[in-house]
């Protein structure tokens, strides 16, 4: 089937089998391999991208369902070489270790902040429940989102909380 969509601002179209998942379309057809596959059941969230502005799991959506949609992946988040504040937050607050869940986590976090510019810690924790991380224990991911939220609101981010933080 013919499918067309806008991915990171670029019009793309291809002939795909109906069973092609959006994540496979992105990874294999478009070679946008920043979006990852971590499970089969839609639980891990490593495949999270934005479709029409909302965070969704691209492993639980057929490519044909995204026909005509605007898709944004991790590769499309930075603009003109400037990191998105959420990306900066993950870097500044050590919000990633192995990095495999990170693209999906960042896409969820950006959608969260788009909807709620000043989330509480509890709102952040529940807002990223659809993204599993096995490395960080989420502590620094929460700090990263707090950092990004502050930046996006034009405030000074809270200082890091590790020992001897500068």
């Amino acid at each position: 089937m013919e499918v067309s969509m806008t991915v990171n601002g670029r019009e793309v179209s291809a002939d795909v089998e109906p069973r092609t998942l959006l994540v496979h379309f992105l990874r294999e057809e478009l070679r946008l391999t920043g979006t990852h596959v971590g499970c089969e059941t839609g639980y891990c969230g490593a495949c999270t991208v934005h479709v029409d502005g909302q965070a969704i799991k691209s492993c639980t959506m057929l490519a044909v369902q995204a026909n005509g949609s605007e898709v944004k992946t991790i590769e499309g988040l930075a603009s003109n070489g400037d990191l998105h504040p959420v990306q900066e937050g993950f870097w500044e607050r050590h919000g990633l270790q192995c990095g495999f869940c990170t693209p999906g986590m960042i896409m969820s976090a950006t959608a969260l902040l788009d909807e709620n510019s000043n989330p509480s810690e509890d709102e952040i924790r529940h807002g990223i429940e659809g993204n599993l991380c096995r490395c960080t224990g989420y502590h620094n991911i929460v700090r990263a989102v707090e950092y990004a939220g502050a930046k996006m609101r034009g405030e000074d981010p809270p200082p890091p909380d590790w020992e001897g933080a500068e």
Partner: peptide, 21 residues
Amino acid sequence: GGMSLIPLMKMRLFTPGVVVD
């Protein structure tokens, strides 16, 4: 939305002949 159906199809626990979206 496909949130129930697609995981079942991915696990090959259920595959309809035609998906009517």
